[in-house]
């Protein structure tokens, strides 16, 4: 539908594990992902899925071990200030997403001051405009974060991220610490920003209902890899990968007629330090075959704009052609 804004190719991030030996934590492994201009892409996964590390690589806060990220066709280098300010973070509130000693105004101005955007005299007006955009009055400008509610703090965080007019927001669990009714306000704000300003958003969360509500497309991660990508409604209506199926079945739904599914996923999420061979999901997979234990399935097209990495889905197609999103 739209142009591709962000192109991620072969992105891999390994961390050295402290202690004996040369063990490595495979946080993100060989991820290919396109983010389209103006879309909200949900990235969902459980602990150790690598979703946060993927977000930090997009933000230039973590240097990938290998692989590339490009923004609008340009190779992303965090040292380039123009590219750098094109991607802005929104973090989970409650654990220091704002400097507790800075006033709201100063936090929102930070990017403008740091990069010399606009004349110094115009910056105050821009801050007021940004605060209004996120639904806050300018009178809050002189407050410190401790005087604000969780929802207000998250709005300030979003205003500060919008200040340098980014092309992409990377939001990592931005509503997880909020009460349901406040969470609704922030989700509405994200939806409005995309609708009115065409901001592209990568929305990272463990909360499936938030993704289902907000995202246009969803990428499901498991132990460092993307195992399924597709339009949200299609994936939620008919999840293809057995992990996605299990994840959706396990998610609590506000519908008391849908109690727990009779067959729950057993076992633990594997550690990304020694991920299982072949498909990382095979030890928990109810339909795994021998091939799954030895050979890693590639992320292949399984339907219109849908990709999945599962031998049982792609094996039926002869000579599957790798297709990028």
């Amino acid at each position: 539908m739209n142009d591709v804004l962000i192109e991620v190719r072969g992105l891999t991030k390994q961390f050295r594990v402290p202690g004996r030996g040369r063990r490595r934590l495979h946080a993100v492994a060989d991820v290919d992902l396109d983010v389209r201009s103006g879309e909200i892409l949900g990235v969902v996964g459980e602990s150790g899925s690598g979703k946060t590390t993927l977000g930090r690589c997009l933000l230039g806060l973590t240097a990938p071990t290998s692989g590339t990220i490009s923004i609008g066709g340009q190779y992303f280098q965090p040292s380039d200030p123009v590219l750098r300010r094109a991607v802005q973070p929104v973090f989970q509130d409650s654990f220091g997403s704002l400097d507790p000693r800075w006033t709201v105004r100063r936090s929102v101005r930070e990017a403008l001051d740091a990069q010399g955007i606009g004349a110094p005299g115009e910056r105050d007006a821009r801050v007021t405009e940004l605060l209004e955009q996120v639904g806050l009055g300018a009178e809050l400008g002189e407050s410190r974060p401790s005087a604000l509610s969780g929802g207000q703090r998250q709005r300030v965080g979003i205003a500060a991220a919008l200040a340098p007019r980014p092309k992409l927001l990377v939001a990592d669990e931005p509503v997880s610490a909020l009460d349901v009714s406040v969470q609704a306000q922030i989700l509405n704000l994200f939806a409005a920003l995309r609708r009115n300003q065409g901001v592209t958003i990568v929305f990272i969360t463990h909360d499936l209902s938030v993704i289902e509500h907000l995202a246009d497309r969803v990428a499901v991660m498991y132990v460092g890899r993307i195992i399924e990508v597709g339009p949200t409604d299609a994936v939620f209506a008919a999840p293809a990968h057995p992990y996605t199926q299990a994840l959706l079945a396990a998610a609590p739904h506000p519908d008391p007629t849908r109690r727990l599914p009779p067959k729950l996923l057993t076992g633990e999420i594997p550690s990304p330090i020694d991920p299982p061979s072949g498909c990382a999901f095979h030890p928990r997979c109810p339909i795994a075959i021998d091939r799954c234990t030895t050979q890693r399935p590639a992320l292949l097209q399984i339907g219109p704009s849908r990709l999945a990495a599962c031998h049982l889905l792609t094996a039926v197609e002869h000579l599957p052609v790798p297709v990028t999103t």
């Binding site: 930090r56 806060l61 802005q88 989970q92 654990f95 220091g96 930070e110 990017a111 740091a114 965080g157």
Partner: peptide, 10 residues
Amino acid sequence: PFVDSSRARG
């Protein structure tokens, strides 16, 4: 996180 944000702000 605000230190990371700051880095991302340039």
